[in-house]
């Protein structure tokens, strides 16, 4: 019995160590999600904020975004290649150029995508590196 309670304590301690993990998901998902969280903090949160709320009408929100829901492959492309020109998100027009990050690997983009598509209001599940590679091959010029 004491062994069991010790194990329970151990599990609770372990679980509380990493608050950014999502319960009830595969180990692979957790790895993607945790890595994606860190990459998001470095590359995206300056503008889109840690809260995903964006800033005014300069940087669009990610926490609730009809654009994200409807345009997964375009989101994958713009993380890598950037985007400029007008962009409608939740009925609001944004027009601040977003620089791409061409140095990101396909895996890193899959991790960022998994993080943003499973944070805040989103619950899309894992976005695998194979999916990302396929989408990146089909990116249009300039998106």
């Amino acid at each position: 019995m004491s062994k069991l309670s010790l194990l329970a304590v151990f599990v609770i301690v372990l679980a509380s160590c990493n608050p950014s993990k999502k319960p009830g998901r595969s180990v692979k998902f957790q790895q993607y999600f945790v890595e994606g969280d860190q990459l998001y903090t470095v590359h995206c949160s300056n503008c889109h904020q840690k809260s995903g709320k964006g800033l005014g009408l300069l940087y669009p929100p990610l926490d609730e975004s009809d654009y994200m829901e409807e345009n997964l492959s375009e989101v994958i492309c713009l993380i890598k290649n950037g985007k400029s020109g007008e962009l409608m998100v939740n009925g609001q027009q944004y027009n601040q150029p977003m620089p791409g990050i061409p140095t990101l690997t396909d895996l890193e983009i899959a991790e960022i995508a998994t993080f943003i598509y499973n944070s805040w209001s989103h619950d899309e599940g894992i976005i695998e590196v194979q999916q990302v590679t396929k989408m990146l091959q089909k990116c249009k010029e300039g998106t």
């Binding site: 300056n46 503008c47 800033l55 005014g56 300069l58 940087y59 601040q96 620089p99």
Partner: peptide
């Protein structure tokens, strides 16, 4: 500067 993607967005969040 407006096209800055490093520290300026954070500065603008704080200045706001």
């Amino acid at each position: 500067f407006t096209s800055c993607r490093t520290i300026c967005p954070i500065m603008k969040t704080q200045m706001l």
